[in-house]
Simulated scan of single mutants.
Amino acid sequence: MPVGEESTDPIDRALGDLPLPVPLTPEDVRIAVRAVVVHAAEEWPAGPRCRNDGLPYPCRLSRWGRRVLETHGLSERQVDALVRHGNPFVRVPFPFVVTGPTRVTRPGPYPARDPAVRTASPARPVARPGGQGRPAAPGVPAPRWPQAS
Rank of each mutant, 00 (worst) to 15 (best):
E42Y: 04
R128Q: 11
Q78L: 07
V29H: 09
P45A: 03
A142G: 12
P125G: 02
V29C: 05
P111R: 12
G108R: 09
W145H: 11
A112L: 01
E70Y: 00
A120R: 14
F94H: 02
P19C: 01
P88Q: 04
P48E: 06
R84F: 01
P125V: 09
L24R: 03
Y110R: 14
R113E: 12
V97G: 14
T71G: 12
R103C: 12
P10K: 05
L82N: 06
P101A: 12
V29I: 08
C50T: 02
V83A: 11
A137C: 06
T119G: 13
R34M: 12
A41M: 00
R134S: 14
A35F: 08
R91K: 10
R113M: 06
R118T: 11
V140S: 01
T25D: 04
V33Q: 07
V22Q: 14
R13L: 00
P95W: 03
Q78D: 03
V92C: 08
D114W: 11
A123T: 15
P146H: 10
P141G: 05
G16K: 00
P141R: 07
R128I: 02
G133P: 05
L61Y: 09
Y57Q: 08
Q132D: 15
A142E: 13
P115K: 11
V104M: 13
G54W: 06
G100Y: 11
G131I: 02
P23M: 01
P141M: 03
L74Q: 09
A120Q: 11
G16L: 05
W145Y: 13
D28A: 03
E76N: 14
V3M: 07
Q147S: 15
A120H: 12
W64S: 03
H85W: 13
R118Q: 11
Q78S: 09
V38I: 12
T99D: 10
P26Q: 15
F89V: 15
N87W: 04
H72E: 09
G108E: 00
P93F: 03
P125W: 07
N52P: 03
R84Y: 06
F89M: 14
N52A: 14
V29P: 02
R60Q: 07
A116F: 08
P141Y: 00
R124Q: 15
E27W: 11
P101I: 00
L24I: 10
